[in-house]
Simulated scan of single mutants.
Amino acid sequence: MLLNDDDENGHLGTGFATAHGRDWPSVRQFNIFLANRMGALLKLVKQFESTDVQVVSLNVVETADCAIIRLLPSNYERAYELLTSGKFPFTESDLIVVKLPDDNRPLLTITKALLGGEINIHYAYPLLIGVGPMGSTALAIHVDNLENAANTLQNQGFTLFNEDDLAC
Rank of each mutant, 00 (worst) to 15 (best):
L71N: 01
I141K: 00
I110S: 03
E147V: 04
A113D: 04
P101S: 09
D103L: 09
L41P: 03
R78K: 15
E77I: 07
Y76F: 14
L83P: 03
T51M: 05
F88Y: 15
F48W: 02
C66H: 14
N145W: 02
M1Y: 06
F161C: 02
I32M: 04
Q29C: 10
G130H: 05
N151P: 00
N148W: 05
F30R: 03
V131F: 01
L3Q: 13
N120T: 13
A167G: 07
L166I: 03
E81R: 11
T159S: 12
A167V: 09
H122N: 12
G39R: 10
S93G: 13
N75S: 12
S136H: 12
C168S: 12
R70I: 02
G116A: 12
P106R: 07
I119L: 04
L42P: 00
G157H: 07
D23S: 14
C66F: 14
L71Q: 03
P126E: 05
F48M: 02
I121K: 00
N36R: 09
H20V: 01
F158R: 08
L58I: 11
G15C: 09
S93Y: 06
G10T: 09
L108Y: 11
I121F: 02
L42A: 15
R37I: 07
D65H: 14
S26D: 02
T63F: 10
H142S: 06
S85K: 15
Y123A: 01
L34D: 09
G132A: 05
A167K: 14
R105S: 14
L114I: 07
D144V: 05
I110H: 01
E77P: 04
D5V: 15
D144T: 07
F161M: 03
K112G: 09
N151D: 13
G135Q: 11
R28S: 05
A79S: 10
D164T: 10
S85R: 15
A35H: 13
R78E: 13
E49K: 12
K99N: 08
A40H: 07
F33I: 11
I96S: 00
P89A: 14
K112S: 12
E118Y: 08
A19D: 08
V55L: 12
F16V: 01
A19R: 15
K112V: 00
L114H: 02
L107V: 07
N145Q: 11
I68R: 09
G132S: 08
V98R: 01
F158K: 06
Q156V: 08
V97A: 02
D94E: 15
L2E: 10
E77T: 11
A167T: 12
R78S: 08
F33K: 10
T152Y: 01
K46P: 02
D94S: 11
H11Q: 14
M134N: 14
Q29R: 10
M38H: 13
S74C: 07
T18P: 00
N148S: 12
L3F: 08
R28Y: 05
N31S: 14
L71P: 02
I110C: 02
Y76W: 10
H20W: 10
A167P: 00
L3V: 06
G13L: 06
P101R: 07
A19W: 06
